[in-house]
Design a protein around this nucleic acid. Structure first.
Lengths: 220, 220
DNA sequence: TCCCGAATGTTCTGGTTCGAATATATCTCG
DNA sequence: CGAGATATATTCGAACCAGAACATTCGGGA
């Protein structure tokens, strides 16, 4: 059996669901939604069916039955196989043990931030800040709800984690925006000059940017 | 011109590079590497060429020349167009202003954590903890280097951000592992029981899991 | 000098993923 | 009671992406 690519965590979600009981794909998607797992695993109807096919092809799940209910499309109910159960545990073990290299979009944006001028950046970061604050409030509220309902912490760990990460980003953004706005951010004059001149002739001049960057390029 | 999907930040990187000067794809990839941008934007040779094609197709960049050097494959040098410059700024603006929904793998793993037993989880989290500590140390070291070289902070913001996020994850993991290990984690007995019984007959019983979960499912 | 490995560049292939399209059943509200 | 919204359930095509394969040149040592 050729090794499967563990790229899409939706496959892990499928394995975890089928661990509990056999289901057909639509039922899986609805169950994931009910349990709010679609917050932590990207769920896409189209992808779900291909992921299921791929799991079948690799022998990690298998068709348990195909049932027809009235005139609706035939549904195929799947169950997990022994190698599927093993794979789920192995995969999960790996994810917990080893931090994966991820590429958050905001990190990419920060990489290219010099393309924007400092005043624009301040304006945009303030908007981001507000948005993050709302997000934190939302997460904290739903955590409080879960707690009020008596749901043990083990079932909302992923929200605790998300909340911790978002709060860290918020702290970062707050520090950054403050320091740019009050001028204490190191090199902000250079940055502002570059864009002040750019404003004069329509857009940031590639040559000026290149020149400004030149002294800092090709590090060891 | 059909709207391009902004899914792959590598396209933004290409626009940002061509803003400075025309380049051929291989040169782009090498430049991204030299500047360590491949840490913040996933760089893949295969993808780079398709991304470039797609940018050409949408009129955001264009071929400036095709040169043949000896008998090597013909290289095509590209330059940014006006609409490409606009798109770069718009895209970047959007990324800075609006937090994107992301799906970190660790968050997915936390979602399915009950599949593993608490003792295994403690062992794995300790390994993760050590790994995160090394990562933070590495990031801090390279930030210190950059500072020593006189590189202004604006050019290593993405590392500052990454460091902040990793430190937050480390704090989260540390708290979590400690509380599971010392038994103060809420519901840890229930969790341990489930797996103690599982160990008796080979693997976690789906029915027991389902039963244990049942009281907590279908929240409002 | 000649061969090997590293660097320079691009293309190909096929699996993955997305988003829209499809089709029927059931609910709901006037 | 019928029309439109919503829920059930899957399929399709196009775009996307990763990784390998390919092809050439250059540098350095035996």
């Amino acid at each position: 059996m050729a090794a499967r690519s563990r790229s899409n965590p939706l496959a892990l979600a499928v394995l975890a669901l089928l661990w509990e009981r056999p289901m057909h794909p639509y039922e899986m998607s609805m169950t994931l939604r009910e349990r709010r797992k679609d917050e932590s695993v990207k769920l896409n109807f189209g992808s779900l069916y291909s992921v299921v096919d791929s799991l079948v092809k690799h022998g990690l799940i298998e068709a348990a039955s195909t049932e027809r209910d009235g005139n609706r499309p035939t549904r195929t109910v799947y169950r997990i196989t022994d190698s599927g159960a093993t794979e789920a545990i192995d995969w999960l073990t790996d994810l917990v043990r080893t931090p994966a290299k991820e590429y958050p979009q905001f990190e990419a944006a920060l990489s290219f931030l010099p393309l924007l001028g400092p005043d624009d950046v301040v304006r945009l970061l303030r908007l981001r800040q507000a948005s993050l604050e709302r997000q934190v409030a939302g997460l904290e509220a739903s955590l409080a709800d879960a707690k009020a309902l008596g749901l043990p912490a083990i079932f909302s760990l992923e929200s605790e984690y998300e909340s911790a990460i978002v709060r860290a980003e918020l702290a970062f953004v707050t520090t950054l925006v403050t320091s740019i706005a009050d001028g204490s951010f190191e090199g902000v004059e250079l940055w502002r000059d570059l864009h002040a001149r750019a404003a004069a002739h329509g857009r940031l001049d590639p040559e000026e940017l290149a020149e400004a960057l030149a002294p800092y390029l090709s590090p060891p």
